[in-house]
Each structure stands twice: as C-alpha cells, then as structure tokens.
C-alpha cells in the first residue's frame, strides 16, 4: 500500500488487516507509562488542510506523534496557498522537503488522487532513477468524494461494539449527497459484508446511488427496528447552494434521531455520528450522549486507525 486514497482500493482482507493493526496498537498503548512507540522515528508526516477540521487533523497529528514521526501542520490560510500557489506546486514542495507522507483535506473531489499521481511521478528522476523520496498521500477528505480513514474508524467502532461487521445491518441517514463520509462508509461496510441502508430526503441523494452497494429507503421509522447500527450524518450547510429541504425544523422531524426514534432501535444497536454534530438538527442531545451512542469511541478509535494507516504506509520497506 503506497497511498490511501479511496476505500474502493481496499479489499476485505486489507481493510480487516488495518482494523486488526488498529486493535493491536490500542492494546499495545493500553496502560503504558510511556505512550510513544519508536516505530516511525525519523519519518515526517505533513498534514495539509484546505478545509477546517478539528478531529481529523488532531487525530492524524496525535497518531503520528505517538509513533514518533515528526508531524508538521500546514493550513491553507497562513501558507503560500493564500498567495495563490497551486495544489501541485505546494504538493511538490512538500515532497521535495522530504515529507514521507502528506495527509490532505481539500474541497475538490479527486484532489488526493491528483497529488498521488504527482508524488509517483516526482519519485522517479529524469533517467528513470529513484529520487529518494516517494511521498505517500493519505486522503483525509476530498470534496464530496471520500474520507477513507473515517470509514475505517467507523468500521473499527462497529466491530468493537457489535462483535462483527459481516451480516450486520447499518443505516446511514441524512445528507448523503454532500457526504464523503457516507460514500466511504457505504463502500467499505459493503466490502466488509454489512448490509447497508441509506435513508435520506430524495433531494439529498446523489446521482448514481443506484449503482452503490446499498439499499435506499425513504423512511427512517420503518428501518429502525431492524438495525444493528445507525449512522447520522451532519447536514453540510456550507456545501448547500440552494434549498434541499423546506426548513431545518422539517428536516429534524423527518430525519432527525429523536428520543422517540432511538427507542425504536433494538437494545444492542449503536448510534454513530462522524462529528461535528449539529445537536437538535440530525440528533438530539439525549441520544448523542446516551448509552447507545459511540460518538466518543469513534474519536478515540480514530487515533488508533490512523496510527494503523501510517504504520502500513510508512513502517515497512519501500515497495
């Protein structure tokens, strides 16, 4: 594995391998006096975020630091990007400085793929010789396309809480159209053998969802009693240029996870939310903080999953 760009590049064995590594890392760090592993000593991980983020950026940074990598954070504001530097130039600059891995979030779908292609080309010199640095690219969210580590940490949380993923029924609810989390989750969960149901207002379903490995349902209430897990998505107001539903009140009534709705779930069912949550919109506080909620477990699993990704990309011999 050289880059992590899309969950569709992962087969079930590779994805399960990443989840196993994450479990083992969690175990290895449990109760440690020194919460630092020497594994990535001397490796440099740059996080480059063109969009706001708390948990993903911090989680990658902690993951790198706990494995002794040097982590550097670049944000679009405050870097040469604000002087008009192109993504390609910024990306090649970071490679030329010797970044072993660039974790990128960018509002354009496909940007991580482009960067990976540039990194692959930059790794080979004019005469076909290796230039010594071959930067790995990790997609930390590209537009409305993918967010693979989020899907992996959701899978880790589900496996933890439900014992397995294969055969479990998971609903993904809300703004699927703008959600890279939804896309990555649908494909990864399907790869891992889960039965995925997407519940959303028709205006918030992407074109081509019929080709996704999931079922689409218009009614949340009808699905709840048979679910093992429900994943609520944030309504991404910042990506909405137009009206997709009449009002937030109406959205909350039809698609929000209220206490009454949560009561329809089976006792063992898990509630997930990738965060940040808009409380009162897609989920009410009583459910978000309730016993079925795994929201904070998702966050802590996020660190271990990202450690596992960095381990698989950076620890071994170059391929």
């Amino acid at each position: 594995m050289k880059h992590l760009l899309s969950v569709t590049d992962l087969d079930a064995a590779t994805a399960t391998g990443l989840l196993d590594t994450a479990d083992r890392l969690k175990q290895a760090l449990l109760g440690r006096e020194v919460r630092k592993l020497p594994t990535l000593r001397g490796r440099t991980v740059v996080t480059m975020f063109y969009e706001n983020s708390t948990r993903t950026r911090v989680s990658f940074e902690i993951a790198g630091k706990w494995m002794s990598a040097d982590t550097v954070n670049v944000s679009a504001s405050g870097s040469s990007v604000s002087k008009g530097e192109s993504l390609r130039d910024t990306s090649l600059t970071l490679s030329a400085m010797g970044a072993d891995c660039v974790v990128v979030r960018h509002p354009a779908s496909g940007s991580a793929h482009r960067m990976a292609a540039w990194a692959d080309r930059a790794a080979v010199g004019g005469g076909g010789e290796s230039t010594g640095t071959h930067t790995s690219i990790v997609n930390a969210g590209d537009g409305t396309h993918e967010h693979p580590t989020q899907a992996l940490l959701d899978a880790a949380t589900l496996r933890d809480r439900l014992g397995a993923i294969a055969g479990r029924r998971v609903a993904i609810v809300g703004d699927v159209l703008h959600s890279r989390v939804a896309r990555s989750n649908v494909f990864l969960l399907a790869t891992l053998g889960a039965e995925v149901v997407v519940v959303a207002p028709p205006t918030l379903l992407p074109v081509g969802i019929a080709q996704w490995p999931c079922r689409v349902s218009p009614s949340l209430d009808a699905e709840l009693p048979a679910l093992d897990a429900v994943m609520m998505l944030r309504v991404q107001a910042e990506r909405m240029h137009g009206s997709f539903f009449p009002s937030s009140r109406e959205y909350a009534v039809s698609y929000g996870l209220s206490q009454a709705r949560a009561a329809l779930l089976p006792d063992h069912a898990v509630v997930l939310h990738p965060g940040p949550m808009v409380r009162g919109m897609e989920i009410v506080p009583a459910v978000a903080d309730g016993p079925a909620s795994a929201v904070l477990a998702q966050v802590s699993n996020g660190v271990h999953v990202r450690m596992a990704v960095l381990y698989h990309l950076l620890a071994g011999a170059p391929e």
Binding site: D20, T21, R24, L25, A28, L30, L37, P38, H312, A315
Partner: peptide, 25 residues
C-alpha cells in the same frame, strides 16, 4: 508483549501484522 513496533529491521521488509500485547493489570 509484541516487540514488532520496536524492531530495528522494520524498514527491511514490508509492514508486518502486529500480535497481541497483554500486560497484567
């Protein structure tokens, strides 16, 4: 205790799977 994460030859071969670490409580 799995020693993999502390090995000095990690860079010499592809990343390997990790094993169980269980330290008594």
């Amino acid at each position: 205790v799995d020693a993999t994460l502390h090995r000095d030859d990690l860079r010499r071969r592809p990343a390997r799977a990790l094993e169980d670490t269980e330290v008594p409580e």
